[in-house]
């Protein structure tokens, strides 16, 4: 019966997909004349169920339908590691970490704060214990917040790759690889512009099967042009071309490839993939609404907004 796993959850997700914003909804929002009108359209959609839930509610619902699905947790690793960065900085600078904590997350804030304060990392999930210890040691020794952030970001991607392999999920392996590639290209580009050292890049770049770490670092050390040439010869020549053109276009490409991955699960009737795809789609929808809202607030024209809109799942 393993082949019919999560039939119940997939049924619920298929019904919920009807409430995701579609192309006509986005067109309507883009054509809205002001932020107030955007808010009014979204509010009216909320009445019919669309966008009524934030990501935390969507996550809670997915866990309710598939409480035993461990691979779903990989989707929150980025939030977990972000929260680790936030808590480290907050503790060191005597601030309240609550302000920087984002949810949903696999690790509750008190657990994270307690682990960092006591330096007892055993209460943290296995995938972030070593990172927490290394990052704390690094930031207290060097006082270099950027370096410890880079370490945490790279370790988050490594943890995602490792867990995806452990749970044997091809979908999540692809998801982790795509996130890694997107992050690595961006990191390498920034490092090349800022003339960061090979040692810094060694910490900041994660590496994946699709984009080899050493080769990427070597290219980035040669400067931005050298990096673009390297990317042009790789599977990600289009990403390199977009990054050369504009970072906004590159960011859009990063989000769009994730939605393209999610689309591969649209035809599946069973398994965890449709649940993961729905979460990715919801993340993209929320991002689209944020972009739209900001664009409207700053009076951007329709063409600019349309250009910035991410691909839709439905």
């Amino acid at each position: 019966m393993n082949g019919t796993k999560y039939a119940n959850a997939v049924g619920a997700v298929r019904a919920m997909e009807n409430t995701l914003l579609g192309k006509s909804d986005i067109d309507q929002l883009v054509n809205a004349r002001s932020k107030a009108e955007v808010d009014s359209i979204i509010a009216s959609k909320r009445g019919s169920g669309a966008n009524s839930d934030g990501l935390a509610e969507v996550w809670a619902m997915l866990r309710e339908y598939a409480p035993d699905c461990k691979e779903l947790e990989i989707l929150l690793y980025r939030n977990d590691f972000h929260n680790l960065k936030a808590v480290l900085k907050a503790i060191i600078s005597n601030r309240d970490p609550q302000h920087y904590y984002i949810s949903p997350s696999n690790v509750e804030l008190p657990v994270l704060v307690d682990a960092i304060n006591t330096k007892e990392y055993d209460n943290l999930p296995e995938y972030m214990r070593d990172t927490a210890a290394k990052a704390y040691e690094l930031v207290t020794r060097t006082l270099d917040g950027q370096l410890s952030d880079s370490l945490i970001d790279a370790d988050a991607l490594k943890a995602m790759q490792k867990s995806a392999v452990r749970y044997g999920s091809d979908f999540m392996k692809r998801y982790a690889n795509l996130l890694t590639v997107c992050a690595d290209i961006k990191t390498a580009y920034r490092c090349s512009i800022l003339n960061k050292s090979a040692q810094f890049m060694e910490t900041a770049v994660c590496g994946s099967d699709e984009l080899e770490k050493d080769a990427l670092i070597k290219a980035a050390l040669g400067g931005a042009e050298s990096l673009f040439s390297f990317l042009e010869a790789s599977h990600y020549s289009n990403a390199g071309a977009l990054l050369k053109e504009s970072t906004a276009q590159y960011e859009k490409w990063c989000d769009d490839v994730l939605i393209e991955l999610a689309e591969t699960a649209r035809m599946q009737a069973f398994g965890a993939e449709p649940l993961e795809a729905y979460f990715i789609a919801k993340e993209a929808e929320i991002k689209n609404l944020r972009i739209l809202s900001v664009c409207k607030e700053f009076g951007a024209d329709k063409e600019t907004i349309t250009e910035r809109m991410r691909k839709l799942y439905v």
Binding site: M1, T4, N8, G11, A12, R14, A15, M16, N18, Y65
Partner: peptide, 21 residues
Amino acid sequence: AKGVGIVGEAAAGVVSVDPSK
């Protein structure tokens, strides 16, 4: 029994979100 059970699971998921179906 197995077949009806599988469909029942999927159907219950849909109905839990949209009872009209």
